[in-house]
Nucleic acid binder design. Structure first.
Lengths: 171, 171
DNA sequence: GGAGGAAAGCTTCCATGGAAGACAATATAA
DNA sequence: TTATATTGTCTTCCATGGAAGCTTTCCTCC
């Protein structure tokens, strides 16, 4: 019933042998976080793939869907919401448009702008895919009991708050 | 002094409005984990870049360094240690070899095999880069107090253990 | 010992995203 | 009003990694 040392612990042990001058304790957190995130992403992508979507496309459809009717957003907004560059968003929209899941039209107010909108097919697809996605997330999180999950969420929320705010300067 | 709702909380609120039939609680954990991991990776890469390294190259050099003298490993071992395909490892080694940081030679025992070894320059570079990397990890983790960090590590270790073992079937 | 299968590394092709710049349209300043 | 800066999107080029298949070598079993 003993835990035989996980991958990260083995890496730490090796570093302690090779570089006893360094305190590699942070790897215990950061290394495992990275690893959990990688494994989770992999599992999540498996569900996206069932609907013919990559992670990027799923994110864009989800951002449009949760915007509420009429399910429209500017490319720039989508970029901000999905944490990628506008160039990446352009390509994601290209793919989604080709697949008939979104449309692109000119904005009425600002002639530089464009409006990306979910089509009926896109709406229908993301509704199914998102429900399946959430089901999947429940399964993945079932490895933790509710108290652990709550603790983890609280810790991550606090860390994120101190990691993220590099934005928002005082006006 | 109030927390104005972080990015993930806003996403959850939008989904609760649009899809009240779904329980999006897991996003509170998984979404934030993903986000923390992304931000951390970004910060870590900034340090790698100071040494002219990408994440992939850093990982390979680190794996060689912590192997201990004479700092050698087979490409397949490197692939296993760094969680990427052997094809990706081949390309990483190509780049590192071109930069004079590693050498590649034939294995003596098995003529299919190759041995990748750190050069003097590679050893020297990864020793500096790794020390800087650990310093950086300490800084990033300083946002949490030691008790929080320990809690977080324990939770992630447990989750990882239940997420990872898809390997190791009983013989 | 020879045949078939497995293993190791590499190659090819492709998908994705970032960085930086091009362009058009709008906002701001003089 | 004209000149300048800024904004929003898209384009181009490049870097990286995965998937699948190839080649060589080794292993196993008959």
């Amino acid at each position: 019933m003993e835990q035989p040392l996980d991958h990260v612990a083995r890496i730490q042990a090796a570093w302690r042998r090779e570089r006893p001058d360094l305190d590699v304790a942070p790897q215990g957190v950061i290394g495992r976080l990275h690893r959990v995130a990688t494994l989770l992403t992999h599992e999540l992508c498996a569900v996206y793939a069932r609907y013919g979507l990559g992670e990027g496309e799923f994110d864009v459809l989800a951002a449009l869907r949760r915007a509420g009717a009429p399910y429209e957003r500017a490319p720039g907004e989508l970029a901000a919401h999905t944490m990628v560059t506008t160039g990446a968003v352009t390509k994601r929209i290209d793919r989604l448009e080709r697949a008939g899941l979104v449309t692109r039209r000119a904005a009425t107010e600002d002639r530089r702008g464009r409006v990306v909108a979910l089509t009926g097919a896109g709406r229908e697809l993301i509704d199914r895919a998102f429900a399946d996605h959430i089901r999947n997330e429940h399964e993945l999180l079932a490895a933790l009991d509710p108290a652990e999950a709550a603790q983890l969420e609280a810790l991550l929320t606090g860390w994120l708050a101190r990691l993220e705010p590099p934005a928002a300067p005082a006006p």
